[in-house]
Simulated scan of single mutants.
Amino acid sequence: MKIILFSDVHANLPAFERALEEIDKLIPDAIYCLGDLVGYHVFPNEVINKIRERRIPTIAGNHDAKVRKLTEAQLSEFGKNYAYSIIGEQEKQFLTTLPSHIRVDFELNEDIFRILMVHGSPYSNEEYLLENKDESDFINIFKEAGADILCFGHSHKPYHRVLCETIDDKTRFYHAINVGSVGKPKDGNPQGGFVVLHIHKNSGNLYEESIQVQFIRFDYDINLSTQAIENSPLPNELIKMLEQAY
């Protein structure tokens, strides 16, 4: 099975349209969005409506949740809040109905493994699960969440980390997958990115050989994206952040 996972579009329509082109080429079996459709850019409604048109299951990121918390006074301020003030009423309603997580269970090789998709962490859409997190603390998160594979975004820095523990001579593997960012990378590479999660049935170890994670990076017309910011009330510092990916 081929599953597409992406996150943190942040209203960057030129990047999102290119991502969808790349995704369509891969002919996936399923597509999931891990949140943050809005913020930092001028195309929130277009991004939201493309998600809805394609019926892509989506969870709420911290920026999506922020929309319902902003006051009228805050929305009227220039600066970064402009990105939220232009969201339409129907689009706001959609954001307020997004779930906090998605679970998918697979029975494979006579075993069951559980995928949990969140935006930040199982506890909060604002918590960062960084690659250098203490291993024992990370494993505890998997146990408490009841997950074998944990997929998330939020930090905009993609990675795949395999953790393991051995109890009574039996080794259990856990996969932590940060899917990166479609529209606002922060790893020094301005290319957009998403993940292809491959699930195979084989006679090997379920948690090692049955799971493959492929990171896709793609170019898009970043000038088209930065010009839209330059022609808007958004701060020009966002242009540099896109160009230098921080």
Rank of each mutant, 00 (worst) to 15 (best):
residue 1 M to S: 14
residue 2 K to Y: 07
residue 5 L to A: 08
residue 6 F to E: 00
residue 8 D to M: 13
residue 10 H to Q: 10
residue 12 N to M: 07
residue 13 L to S: 02
residue 15 A to S: 14
residue 16 F to G: 03
residue 16 F to Y: 14
residue 18 R to K: 15
residue 22 E to V: 13
residue 24 D to Y: 12
residue 25 K to R: 15
residue 30 A to V: 05
residue 31 I to G: 03
residue 31 I to W: 07
residue 31 I to D: 01
residue 32 Y to N: 01
residue 36 D to M: 06
residue 38 V to H: 02
residue 41 H to F: 06
residue 42 V to K: 05
residue 44 P to Y: 01
residue 44 P to I: 02
residue 45 N to M: 10
residue 48 I to Y: 10
residue 49 N to C: 09
residue 52 R to F: 03
residue 52 R to D: 06
residue 52 R to Q: 13
residue 53 E to P: 00
residue 56 I to R: 08
residue 56 I to C: 02
residue 57 P to F: 10
residue 57 P to K: 12
residue 60 A to E: 08
residue 61 G to N: 12
residue 62 N to P: 00
residue 66 K to P: 01
residue 67 V to N: 05
residue 68 R to K: 12
residue 70 L to A: 10
residue 71 T to N: 07
residue 79 G to M: 14
residue 80 K to Y: 04
residue 80 K to Q: 03
residue 84 Y to N: 07
residue 85 S to N: 11
residue 86 I to S: 05
residue 86 I to Y: 08
residue 87 I to R: 03
residue 89 E to P: 02
residue 91 E to H: 05
residue 92 K to M: 07
residue 99 P to L: 10
residue 102 I to N: 12
residue 104 V to N: 13
residue 105 D to V: 03
residue 111 D to N: 12
residue 111 D to Y: 06
residue 112 I to F: 04
residue 121 S to H: 07
residue 123 Y to V: 02
residue 124 S to C: 06
residue 127 E to S: 12
residue 133 K to M: 11
residue 133 K to P: 00
residue 133 K to I: 11
residue 135 E to V: 09
residue 135 E to R: 10
residue 140 N to L: 13
residue 141 I to T: 15
residue 142 F to I: 01
residue 143 K to C: 02
residue 143 K to I: 10
residue 143 K to F: 04
residue 144 E to D: 15
residue 144 E to F: 05
residue 148 D to C: 08
residue 149 I to C: 13
residue 150 L to K: 03
residue 152 F to D: 01
residue 153 G to K: 00
residue 155 S to V: 03
residue 156 H to Y: 02
residue 156 H to C: 08
residue 158 P to S: 13
residue 158 P to I: 08
residue 159 Y to S: 07
residue 163 L to Q: 01
residue 164 C to S: 10
residue 164 C to D: 09
residue 166 T to A: 07
residue 170 K to E: 12
residue 171 T to V: 12
residue 171 T to F: 08
residue 172 R to D: 01
residue 172 R to E: 09
residue 174 Y to R: 00
residue 176 A to S: 15
residue 177 I to F: 07
residue 179 V to R: 06
residue 183 G to C: 13
residue 184 K to I: 15
residue 186 K to L: 10
residue 186 K to R: 15
residue 187 D to F: 06
residue 187 D to W: 09
residue 190 P to S: 09
residue 193 G to S: 12
residue 194 F to S: 02
residue 194 F to A: 02
residue 195 V to S: 12
residue 196 V to E: 09
residue 196 V to K: 05
residue 197 L to W: 03
residue 199 I to V: 14
residue 201 K to D: 15
residue 202 N to I: 14
residue 203 S to D: 09
residue 203 S to P: 00
residue 204 G to Y: 11
residue 205 N to R: 11
residue 207 Y to D: 02
residue 208 E to M: 10
residue 209 E to L: 08
residue 210 S to E: 04
residue 212 Q to E: 15
residue 213 V to N: 09
residue 215 F to Q: 04
residue 216 I to F: 14
residue 220 Y to F: 15
residue 220 Y to E: 08
residue 222 I to W: 08
residue 222 I to F: 11
residue 231 N to G: 01
residue 233 P to C: 04
residue 233 P to H: 04
residue 237 E to W: 10
residue 237 E to M: 07
residue 238 L to Q: 07
residue 238 L to Y: 13
residue 239 I to W: 09
residue 239 I to H: 12
residue 240 K to P: 00
residue 242 L to F: 04
residue 245 A to L: 13
